[in-house]
Design a protein around this nucleic acid. Structure first.
Lengths: 193, 193
DNA sequence: TAGAAAAATGAACAATCGTTCAATAACATT
DNA sequence: AATGTTATTGAACGATTGTTCATTTTTCTA
């Protein structure tokens, strides 16, 4: 029986993720969420415990989707470097599509929250570092494939790409219809050495 | 008579800027502000009209301070390129000091706000573009001084530096005690061509 | 120094916040 | 069909939100 459970947990979390991603943690009220995921307060609290609990699920949902997307990019080509380019291009250019925000949700969260929400802040940092590890893994693949010099420091290259991704996405938020976006992305890879 | 006006406007705005910068627009309540700037609601509203009004002043205050800081860097050396390095190094490394947040307040605001606060969002974008213009002005100086190839596209270089600044600062927020920060900054200038 | 003008106060407002829980509906098992 | 279990509801809670304004205090002028 498909869709027997009225509020399929993953679909609900996905919807909540989109709203949190767009509006941020503080500006998203429980009533906004109630409307957006079509659940009443009692059900939400039974399922997730608190607003923070639901947000934590959203962070996980967002990160998992990104990791899956990176894997999809790797499956599309035998070149790890090309996979990286596919990944970064699609992430950065998703701005024109239906993404809730141009800015990475994890970066947005780390930027917004303080020690008043220490657990959520720490979790966001942890997930961001996980994403960086993922970047380094692909860079190591590229190194093994001879696409990147074997003398390069893969950790530093991963940091560089992470910084580019963060910077590019936040930059595009302030300059959405900049015609030079493609140029800026290509510049990133020209400087990857 | 010094300090005749009890609440010197600029000092108050400076204090408000620090609090807004640390906590963001939504997480900063008017009561937080009342305590932090030592003013009662009536006085605040008489002086600034609204929370948004005060925040707008804070954005201006933050940007002005940054522009002054860039000018100070230019006065410290006759080399425009060295001035840029001084500026970026000091901004990025201010994290260890008393800065309210590692992240640029304008980027933080652009990342946090939506069309629900359209005016503040637009103003933040405007100020960010102003900062980018400032970067380009120094790059042009560096070009005139022969420190940067005259064939370089100064607008693109300014965009590149802007993206690096945004990315580095947000990155450092998630990785505050990373020992490679200096390396990452130097990498930025190695890639500036 | 008396009085007018300006500035600062803080109690109070309606609206909204995150959250709870008794009541109801839907389901599963017999 | 009856019963026990689980899921969902939505009114209501106290706390907090941004904001207002009658009152008091301070400052300036004559």
């Amino acid at each position: 029986m498909v869709n027997q459970i009225k509020h399929d947990r993953e679909v609900v979390i996905q919807k909540a993720t989109n709203l949190f991603w767009e509006k941020g943690f503080h500006a998203t009220s429980m009533r906004n969420l109630q409307d957006h995921i079509d659940m009443r307060p009692g059900s939400i609290y039974a399922a997730f415990g608190s607003k923070e609990g639901l947000f934590k699920e959203a962070l996980k949902c967002y990160t998992d989707a990104n990791i899956r997307h990176m894997q999809k990019c790797q499956e599309q080509t035998s070149s790890p470097l090309e996979a990286l380019k596919l990944f970064i291009r699609s992430i950065v250019k998703r701005q024109q599509d239906d993404a809730p925000s141009e800015v990475c949700m994890l970066v947005k969260t780390v930027s917004e929250l303080t020690e008043d929400n220490a657990e959520l802040l720490a979790e966001s940092k942890r997930l961001l570092n996980m994403m960086e590890d993922g970047l380094e893994a692909v860079i190591i693949c590229a190194q093994d494939a001879g696409e990147i010099s074997s003398s390069s420091d893969t950790r530093r290259l991963a940091q560089f790409l992470q910084i580019q991704l963060i910077g590019l996405r936040a930059y595009i938020r302030t300059n959405k219809d900049n015609p030079c976006i493609d140029q800026l992305i290509e510049d990133t890879f020209l400087r990857l050495h």
